[in-house]
């Protein structure tokens, strides 16, 4: 029985990665939930928006590296982030003007907009691949670790190491700042409040003199920023591959729905619920169980509940359970 080492192993392989992944999902889900709240459709092109913003960050990072600009121990991508956000913002505003705006004017059914967003997804997908191809790219530079497993073992004298990567801490910090800014914006500023009002009751917002086109524009800007931040954090933490971002759509939607579509707080909670479930259920607990069990004993198998290939099944199962038992999500989202 070695509780401390078990805890360290669990932290190292579950808590730390799941926190980072949860933060990435949460910011992604915030974008989806804002679009849903204001524009009232599920945006299937959100994964590509994330990929697009991240791609620009990656390209600008490459430029900065060539010019010898860096942030020292921090990834250069942080410096490139504003460029990615600006590019993503330009892209979504252009899409809105050329595509979505028409359907708002004719008051199209929400499901129509979902199909439209499929078309947008296809186009963005093509553009992405034409610009950057389909290769797997890493663009994280700077200091790789904040705590190295070996150092941790030396400090603590434990046999189990704990490694914390810079990107993981960075993810959490950036996510906290982003969420704090977003909530300040939504709850304290006039524009943010008008967005919430519009999401709450469109007709009354119009009566109150809130300009819907302005609300929509600001929403896209915020969504572009969130998507780029989420995509960049994910890309820094793992790697950049356009294809992967499309696959993230399912866990991101699951997070948003589990939390309650339209509820920003719900999106954050949903992100962490999905991330922790995914990683806990697909983690091989052999090490942890060995530490916890009697000395000298260790389990035969990996003690892994599900193969990691089935992580989508976890998001999906949670999604279905929530939809069946609490259709409006954990935090009451929109039921319309």
């Amino acid at each position: 029985m070695d509780f401390l080492n078990a805890l360290v192993a669990f932290t190292n392989f579950v808590i730390v990665p799941a926190s980072a992944y949860g933060a990435q999902l949460a910011i992604g889900a915030l974008g989806v939930t804002l679009i849903y709240g204001i524009l009232r459709f599920s945006n299937f092109a959100h994964g590509e928006t994330m990929a697009f913003g991240t791609m620009v960050v990656l390209l600008v990072t490459g430029l900065f590296q060539q010019w010898g600009i860096s942030l020292g121990p921090l990834p250069t991508a942080l410096l490139a982030l504003p460029f990615g956000i600006a590019a993503a913002a330009a892209l979504v505003l252009f899409t809105d003007k050329t595509v979505y705006k028409f359907y708002r004017r004719v008051k199209a059914a929400p499901v129509m907009l979902v199909i439209v967003s499929m078309g947008v997804m296809f186009m963005m997908n093509g553009i992405l691949r034409m610009i950057i191809g389909t290769d797997d790219r890493r663009f994280a530079d700077g200091e790789r670790f904040i705590i190295r497993a070996r150092d941790f073992k030396e400090w603590t004298g434990l046999s189990e190491g704990l490694a914390i990567r810079t990107t993981q801490v960075l993810t959490i910090v950036v996510a906290l700042i982003t969420v704090a800014l977003l909530f300040w914006f939504l709850n304290k500023t006039r524009t943010g409040k008008s967005m919430r009002a519009y999401s709450d009751n469109e007709d009354l917002a119009l009566l109150s003199g809130i300009n819907p086109e302005r609300v929509v524009m600001i929403t896209w800007l915020v969504v572009a920023a969130l998507a780029t931040v989420a995509g960049t954090l994910y890309g820094l933490d793992k790697s950049f591959k356009p294809f992967v971002y499309m696959q993230l759509l399912l866990p991101i939607f699951a997070s948003a729905i589990v939390g309650g579509l339209g509820s920003p707080l719900g999106a954050i909670a949903g992100g962490f619920v999905i991330a922790f479930s995914e990683i806990t259920l697909t983690y091989a607990f052999k090490k942890v169980v060995t530490y916890l069990g009697p000395d000298g004993w260790s389990p035969d198998g990996l003690v892994q509940l599900l193969s990691t290939d089935y992580k989508f099944a976890v998001s999906f199962a949670i999604l279905i359970i929530v939809l069946l038992f609490k259709p409006t999500g954990l935090f009451k989202g929109k039921s319309v």
Partner: peptide
């Protein structure tokens, strides 16, 4: 049996999920 009767975009996400799982 589980997802019909939910709103249209929930059904969409549910089918998206089942598709991914079958492929997995």
């Amino acid at each position: 049996k589980t997802a019909l009767g939910l709103r249209s975009d929930y059904l969409a996400i549910a089918t998206l999920g089942i598709g991914e799982i079958i492929i997995a």
